[in-house]
Amino acid sequence: MTSALLEQDVEATDADRDVRGGTSFWRYAGRKAGGAAFSLVMVVVLGFFAFRILPGDPTRSMTRGRIMSPEQLETLKRQFGLDEPLHTQFWIYLKNLPRLDFGESYVYRRPVSDLIAEHLGATLLLTGVSAAIAIALGLWIGQRAAWRRGSWFDRLNTGSALVLWSVPTFWLGLILLLVFGGMLHWLPTGGLKTAGTTATGIPLVWDVIRHMIMPVVTLVAVTYAQYLLVMRASLLEEMHADYLTTARAKGLREDLVRRRHAVPNALLPTVTLVFLHLGGLIAGAVTVEAIFSWPGLGYLTYAALSGPDLPLLQGTFVVFSSIVILMNLAADLLYRFLDPRVRAA
């Protein structure tokens, strides 16, 4: 089905090949889980060594711009366990990892795990809603554009997708802030809800929605374009398939040929890519949350940078990366269920 070219073009994963190999589901799942486990171990190791081995004393960057006495530096070193030998530090780090204990934030003076737990919900809400809208929009426009390739609808949408793909997320956010916050004063400029609000129930939901509009629009605008292009490309691959001719010969309406026959097949390579691009959405969340002061993990990362608050940064890095890796594993497994050729086997 997928030619080698499309595979290269859209960087499809190994999943395509595995499917045709006809291996059993459990062996496939085991291999994918093994890959994910390897990635998680890499994240954990990188999360430790990136903050220790790289040139520069962590305490020095921690105290960048501040004047500290040697005694204070010593205390700081002991407090973060930096006076221990490296392998002991690594062992302590591993021992604390299952409890997601990354130590105490340097800026907030609170355990990093508490901070992450507090901010995780806001990020999941923002990225979840944005991803759902972006995927629905991208896939729908993408298949329409491919079906009527070369029409004004196709050219308009592919063109604007290319332009939006070139737009830096944070700039689009700034523009929205400029127009709707700074000039028209239609929408709140930051936060998850109005500060000090006592509203509950429906008014609270409405307040949160109003705060969400700009961040969500920003994230959707920069991500739906790639879903659109991928969907369009994979449907174009299907356009001249024999089974479509058969479907038409049966006398099916064009609409049904597209919906029932072409699209389901084109969806297969798209699904994995959608999940593969979730990493991009997470990256977008960092800047969007910084601009709109959305109290999520991205905002926490941004706050950690100004310190720089290394324990906090380490925590958000490990959590962000783990989420993306697990989502990706989910996509790989889902792929096997979606492919009818495998289900039948």
């Binding site: 960087e11 890959g35 390897f38 990635s39 890499m42 994240v43 990188l46 990136a50 903050f51 790289l54 040139p55 520069g56 960057s61 593969l276 990493g279 991009g280 997470i282 990256a283 960092v286 990362t301 950690a304 940078l305 720089p308 290394l310 940064l313 380490q314 958000t316 890095f317 962000f320 990366s321 993306v324 890796i325 990706n328």
Partner: peptide, 24 residues
């Protein structure tokens, strides 16, 4: 190849942020 897969999946901007925060 596993390492390639790892870098492919990882949100590269987050890692880039970490690297540029830690280095000079």
């Amino acid at each position: 190849m596993r390492v390639v897969d790892f870098f492919l999946v990882l949100p590269s901007l987050v890692l880039a942020i970490v690297l540029s925060a830690v280095l000079a």
